[in-house]
Amino acid sequence: MSISRGCRGLLVTALAVTTGCGAAAGERGDAAAAAATGFTYALQRADGRQACALLAPRTLDELEKPEQTPCAQAVTEERLPAGGAVRRVDVYGGQARVVLTGDTLFLAHFPSGWKVTAAGCTPRPEQPYDCTIKGG
């Protein structure tokens, strides 16, 4: 797991608190990675209910909206790519990106923990990731 290069390269201890770098980022990165892998493992087991419990509210709403399908059913029908092992975690403030061997997920921090805001994401040059599920 790697924390962003920007954080690693700068040994400005006094600024660590405000940049989200340092030891705290490691714990936050671990928690974000755990939420991301928890989400993908739940989908592997076809456990839509558990996967939905790890979705951010707006992402969950967007998933249910088109067909008024319950989240647990809609999320398993999306056929998101298998996640796999964690390759990289970036955490800045209340936002995180977790790159797995098979997928990239974006997460946001809520009082109840890290929640997936977007999944099934593939990078596009000079543009936001193209994500299968995401908030509005």
């Binding site: 920007g6 700068l10 400005v12 600024l15 405000t18 989200g20 990106r97 990731y129 995401k134």
Partner: peptide
């Protein structure tokens, strides 16, 4: 220098919120 370091983190937080890749300090 502090602006550049904290600016990198603030910029990256917004990048992630917009589903975009974060950048390193030298890129920022």
């Amino acid at each position: 220098l502090a602006q550049s370091v904290t600016g990198t983190a603030a910029y990256n937080e917004q990048q992630l919120r917009d589903l975009q890749a974060p950048v390193g300090w030298t890129q920022y």
